[in-house]
Design a protein around this nucleic acid. Structure first.
Length: 122
DNA sequence: GTCTTGACTAAGC
DNA sequence: GGCTTAGCCAAGA
C-alpha cells in the first residue's frame, strides 16, 4: 500500500481546534493543558496545547488565561509579566490563587465524570 | 538530517 | 510538600 493511511491533520487545523476548545471553558473556571488536549482529541498532547496557545494570534479572543498546568499552577514563571497578567484575569473572573495555585476541585472545569455523578442536591 | 528546546504530565525520591 | 527523571511530540536552529 502506498501509505494510504490517515492524512495527519495540519497543525493549523489542530491549533484551531484547540483554540475552539479553550473558548468553551466557562467563565470562572479553569482547565488543564491535558484536559484541553483530551477534549481536542489530541490525547496526551498537552504540549501541543501549549504550542497552540503560543501561536495564538494577539487579536484572538481566546481565554488562554483559563488554561493552566496540572495541579492548578500557571505555566509561567511567577516573576513573569505573563504570569501576573494571567493571574489578574483569573481573579477578575472570580478565580482565586492560593499559594500561587488554583484549587481545581473548586474552579476546575469538569474534573472527571465521577465528580459529575457525585453532584449532590440533584 | 540531527540535535535542542519547550505555555506538559506522571511517577519517583 | 517540592524537586528530579523519564516520556512525548512538534517546531526551530
Amino acid at each position: 500500500m502506498t501509505g494510504a493511511r490517515e492524512p495527519a491533520p495540519p497543525t493549523l487545523e489542530v491549533n484551531r481546534r484547540i483554540w475552539r476548545t479553550v473558548e468553551q471553558i466557562p467563565p470562572g473556571k479553569v482547565a488543564t493543558y491535558g484536559q484541553i488536549a483530551d477534549l481536542a482529541g489530541l490525547g496526551r498532547g498537552a504540549r501541543r496545547v501549549g504550542r497552540a496557545l503560543r501561536d495564538l494570534p494577539k487579536q484572538s479572543s481566546v481565554p488562554w488565561y483559563r488554561v493552566i498546568r496540572a495541579g492548578g499552577q500557571i505555566a509561567f514563571p511567577a516573576d513573569s509579566d505573563a504570569f501576573k497578567r494571567q493571574r489578574s484575569q483569573l481573579e477578575q473572573e472570580g478565580v482565586s490563587l492560593v499559594n500561587g495555585r488554583i484549587d481545581l476541585g473548586l474552579y476546575g472545569w469538569q474534573r472527571t465524570l465521577d465528580e459529575l455523578l457525585w453532584k449532590p442536591g440533584s
